[in-house]
């Protein structure tokens, strides 16, 4: 990925504690003993018309970027991806795009589940021994925004 700011990075911290506290009873974890470090979500190669939405960049800037791609960039379709907390924003962007195009643009949404990796580092190295790695799932949305074919 050519961009340092990717979608997952800033969205995870908000989404994560919910998972760590409630959804993983299997791992018995004392918050004092372990430090949680989140790894980056797995990245895939990115085309020019892929837009990964994050929570750090200004909303208007991201919207403008999508519009530029559709109008100036000459793309017939773009994909807006959002992960975790950024799902909301991705949907928002897609709807805004559609509204501003006076209904010419169409949307096709797909959801998926992304597997994320956390590292658990023990605080006291001599007692706990092995640091743990675990996976958790987070939801993602992929919205295709496109001009429908003339027929």
């Amino acid at each position: 990925m050519t961009e340092p700011r990717n979608p997952g990075m800033s969205s995870i911290p908000q989404a994560a504690p919910v998972h760590t506290d409630s959804t993983s009873p299997a791992v018995e974890m004392d918050p004092v003993e372990y430090t949680l470090r989140k790894r980056l979500p797995r990245k895939l190669p990115k085309r020019r018309n892929d837009v990964y939405v994050n929570m750090k960049t200004d909303f208007r800037a991201q919207l403008a970027r999508c519009q530029k791609l559709l109008e100036g960039g000459g793309h017939r379709e773009i994909c807006v991806h959002g992960l975790g907390l950024a799902i909301n924003r991705a949907i928002n962007i897609a709807l805004q795009l559609q509204a501003s195009s006076q209904g010419v643009l169409q949307l096709a949404a797909n959801t998926s589940t992304v597997e994320l990796v956390d590292d658990l580092e023990p605080e006291d190295p001599d007692e706990a021994g092995e640091p743990m790695t675990r996976t958790r799932n987070n939801s993602a949305i992929h919205i295709k925004v496109f001009y429908p074919d003339p027929q």
Binding site: R37, L40, R42, K43
Partner: peptide, 9 residues
């Protein structure tokens, strides 16, 4: 692997 950051540190 796509990015170096995906590996265990």
């Amino acid at each position: 692997i796509y990015s170096t950051g995906e590996l265990p540190p």
